[in-house]
């Protein structure tokens, strides 16, 4: 650990300020709490909101996992993991079950989370109403008054244009029957995992300076119509490496002839299954790697 950094990069006053925002967010599930977002040594859009929330949550005993689109080994995930190794000196892991704090971009791990874990989301646009109402003053008023007809207008437009609710990620939920919340751009496949989750779920938007939260076991209902109910869809395939049928899949083009394979986006989950002996269509040679 390089001693020139304060623990987890941010100064103690800033972490205190962020913790206050987090506590308020946990106390009012789904409500967007403004906070004084700091400049971080990375560009906006690279997870500055999530990094600040993680920094405010970390204690030296924590074991941190960072994923980007479900993968532990992508540039963004690796950079953020290294950032906290260097500035906080915490232990890191790729195993979901072993982590105490997980920072994520665009996914919820397949392995069910447990009590005591904290899942930190990176959020680009925290305001679910922004699509149709550009004025912040007005959207805040709409949240205040539970004036949420506009949310369904967005879904209506989807069906009118595409014949179905085409919103596949960033799918809005109503939290504890009160606030409509943007779950960050996770696939709607992950929406059911938001609800009644034993872990604490925290959402940080750095550029927009908002923090919000789902406390453990909070209800989160995906918005829909009676005749167009919400469905947690995924590609209708099995993982070509681990043969999982119930996990979210990435589609990978493998040559110029249009060949493709489907693999779990959650790399830890996929590796775990392969180590346990599950073998997919193309997974034979790599099993046990």
């Amino acid at each position: 650990m390089a001693s020139e950094y304060n623990f987890a990069y941010l100064d103690e006053q800033t972490k205190r300020m962020i913790r206050r925002a987090i506590l308020k967010g946990v106390a009012i599930p789904g409500y967007q709490v403004p906070f004084a977002s700091r400049e971080m040594p990375m560009p906006y859009g690279w997870g500055t909101g999530g990094v600040q929330v993680t920094a405010a949550c970390l204690v030296p005993e924590d074991r941190l996992k960072v994923i980007d689109q479900g993968a532990d080994d992508t540039t963004n995930a690796v950079s953020i993991r290294r950032f906290f190794q260097r500035t906080a000196g915490v232990a890191v892991t790729e195993a979901t079950a072993d982590a105490t704090v997980i920072q994520t971009r665009h996914r919820i791990p397949e392995t069910p989370l447990t009590e005591g874990q904290i899942l930190v989301y990176q959020v680009p646009i925290p305001e679910p109403l922004r699509f149709l109402e550009p004025r912040e003053t007005e959207t805040r008023k709409m949240h205040e008054l539970e004036d949420y007809g506009l949310m369904h207008v967005k879904l209506y437009e989807d069906i009118a244009r595409h014949g179905q609710i085409a919103t596949a990620y960033d799918y809005p939920v109503k939290v504890e029957g009160r606030y409509v919340m943007d779950p960050s751009p996770i696939p709607k496949f992950d929406n059911p995992k938001l609800a009644r989750n034993p872990a604490i779920q925290l959402f940080g938007a750095g550029r927009e300076q908002r923090i919000y939260a789902l406390p453990p076991y909070a209800e989160a209902v995906s918005l829909d119509f009676d005749d167009y109910p919400f469905t947690a869809s995924k590609a209708d395939h099995q993982c070509d490496l681990c043969d999982a049928s119930g996990s979210y899949l990435d589609e990978v083009i493998t040559d110029d002839q249009g060949s493709r394979m489907y693999v779990c986006s959650d790399t830890d989950f996929c590796r775990g299954r392969r180590e346990a002996g599950h073998v997919g269509r193309l997974g034979g040679g790599e099993a046990g790697q």
């Binding site: 004036d147 949420y148 506009l150 209506y156 829909d224 119509f225 009676d226 005749d227 167009y228």
Partner: peptide, 8 residues
Amino acid sequence: MAVGARHY
């Protein structure tokens, strides 16, 4: 929709 219609 604002007054609760939920049937497309």
